[in-house]
Design a protein around this nucleic acid. Structure first.
Length: 212
DNA sequence: ACGGCGATGATCT
DNA sequence: GATCATCGCCGTT
């Protein structure tokens, strides 16, 4: 229980089954700049084509093709014009179930994470990887990491077993999801300060004014 | 503590 | 052309 690489069989279940077991596990990202690793404190499960909130809801596309592939790979997507988020693909292959990594505590490379997150100001350490886009920024994850095998010991992006006991697990509705909001597929560690602040999805009003 | 909102572009219809 | 699995800033309690 000292942070060994997780076997691919860890991802044998569906996203909903795998998600809570990922809490406390460590995602490690290495680059020329160094290594940053986070102990996961918050995740969300997505269920593929049967899930209205999933990117796979409308079937396979170029963007979501990694989710349809083998389990244990990273699905990275770009959203809101400026942010990246990362999922880990689960099983069975072809069903496109996955787990979105929403937050964690930096356990390696705090200095590098601070640099990457200090575009403006200097966030508190607990905010370095608190939220899915912040987590990617702290780890330096972008399009280049899409499709990487996190179960390969030689991969620059790897998933490791929890280094110690994990606290009590809580569940609740997913964040920022405009449909299927009632399914309690968000999992987090009770009382962990690196769990993101929950916000209900706020529909954005279209701008219909003809200008002004 | 909480709510509104702008930034900014890929993706899909 | 609308919608986004978001974040940070700024205003009000």
């Amino acid at each position: 229980m000292n942070g060994g690489l997780l076997p691919r069989s860890f991802f044998a279940g569906t996203g909903v089954e795998v998600a809570p077991r990922l809490l406390g596990c460590v995602l490690s990202a290495s680059s020329d700049d160094g290594e940053v690793a986070v102990a996961l404190s918050e995740v969300e499960a997505y269920a593929g084509e049967s899930d209205p909130a999933s990117h796979a809801y409308r079937g396979p596309t170029r963007r979501n093709e990694v989710m349809y592939g083998a389990p244990g790979h990273a699905y990275v997507y770009f959203t809101y014009g400026m942010h990246f988020c990362v999922n880990l693909v689960c099983s069975p292959e072809g069903t496109a179930t996955a787990v979105l990594l929403r937050g964690g505590a930096i356990v390696t490379g705090t200095e590098l994470a601070r640099e990457r997150r200090s575009v403006r100001g200097s966030p508190a350490d607990r905010d370095l990887a608190r939220g899915p886009a912040r987590l990617c920024q702290a780890l330096g994850i972008d399009r280049a990491q899409n499709g990487l095998d996190v179960c390969d010991v030689a991969s620059p992006l790897r998933i490791l077993a929890a280094a110690g006991p994990v606290g009590a697990v809580c569940t609740g509705p997913r964040v920022g999801v405009s449909s299927a909001a009632t399914v309690p597929w968000r999992f987090w560690i009770e009382g962990d300060p690196t769990v993101s602040v929950y916000r209900v999805h706020a529909p954005r009003r279209a701008n219909h004014s003809g200008g002004r």
